[in-house]
Design a protein around this nucleic acid. Structure first.
Lengths: 208, 208
DNA sequence: CCTTTTTCTTTCGGATACGAATCATATCCA
DNA sequence: TGGATATGATTCGTATCCGAAAGAAAAAGG
């Protein structure tokens, strides 16, 4: 075996969770560099290699760790929900979100549903097609303005959400359970601040 | 026009950011319900409709808001970065993350790179194919164990990262700029707690 | 040795995902 | 009225994305 510490689960992930714990990085990099890239680098030389990439660049490690963990956390949440409550109903995260939006706002128009679900209209179009195929959702053309399309759940979709949603919410509680009640509220507040900030500065494209 | 407040941007999104600000929900739901679903519901009746879906279910709104905003924030971040720094190099978020991982750990093996990037091995396989096509990355079969594949950046990929990464990091600083330094660290800590918690309880599948 | 098992990567099928182009409808205004 | 303009939804092309199956190579155990 090439890597002696194979069994140790990686601590890092994505751009830069790594920098919050420097030692493992060096160990990995050392391993790879030594056995593969050149075959004979020492640890000191390896560190020099990393530094030649980042050290001269004045990196903001704090912000980097925050963004990396934000993305990683969202990923974990999606995976966790996909592998628990959603799997039992063969739903993707996005599929569930779309169902949820339509459940809460029966008759919602396509572009609003896309906005609420946080996906593009073209993506929604595909998801709705899938949901229609499973008899969970229905399209209805507006009789007054025939450009508009309203979305509704079928009775089957409605029944499913009634069963699924409480379980979904239970997992939401579970997901944030390592945090205090105060901590959860603080987290929400910080996340909203980031969303507001970025959406206000989003370049053209998604104006509505 | 059906919706008088068409111009007002929706505040909500995804499962439940909505419940942190109840009024707009009612306005929307009222609008939809009134003009479409039945045609003549009053506001009071509309509220009853919503309650018939959720009120009896004992929902944990606090956790719900946190998870909804977490996912939404990650979405905003990905979109923002895709539309700014990454667009200039025609890279997707995932593509960038993969390049970054390989940049930091030259010669990293496929399964480790997937783990670090937070994507499945099959996804990585496709991304690497794309990157190879653009001459940014290279596959190398391990001469000792021919099952293993090592990844490396080409000179061109290396040059690109050297230019791109500082700009990427600059946007990371910008993204969290509405938060205090202390706030950013608290956020990171909370996110890591969620990740650790969920990964420890992730059902089978991704044990690796 | 040589079958069985394990390990690692890729391929495959189907669903997301987005921007650009397209199609359908509605509004504007001369 | 009727062409130009605007607005909505869908389709199209391409790139992710994943789990399951397939493929390739190494290790294990007689």
């Amino acid at each position: 075996m090439i890597h002696g510490d194979e069994k140790q689960k990686s601590i890092l992930i994505a751009p830069l969770a790594v920098w919050t714990d420097f030692a493992p990085v060096c160990r990995w990099a050392h391993t790879y560099t030594m056995v593969w890239v050149t075959g004979f680098y020492t640890l000191a030389e390896t560190e020099k290699t990393i530094e030649s990439r980042l050290s001269g660049l004045e990196i903001d490690f704090t912000s980097q760790a925050a963004i990396a963990n934000l993305y990683r956390a969202a990923n974990s949440v999606r995976k966790y929900f996909s592998n628990t409550v959603l799997r039992s109903n063969d739903l993707s995260w996005t599929g569930f979100v779309v169902l949820w939006v339509v459940w809460i706002w029966p008759g919602i128009e396509v572009r609003h549903a896309a906005e609420e679900a946080g996906i593009s209209k073209s993506t929604l179009s595909g998801v709705v097609r899938t949901m229609e195929g499973r008899s969970l959702m229905r399209r209805e053309i507006d009789p007054t303005d025939r450009r508009l399309v309203h979305l509704e759940l079928t009775d089957q979709g409605d029944r499913m959400m009634l069963d699924l949603f409480p379980r979904f919410n239970g997992e939401e509680s579970f997901a944030v359970s390592p945090l205090s009640s105060k901590g959860v509220q603080e987290l929400t507040k910080s996340l909203k601040a980031i969303v507001t900030h970025l959406e206000a500065n989003m370049p053209e494209t998604m104006g509505e």
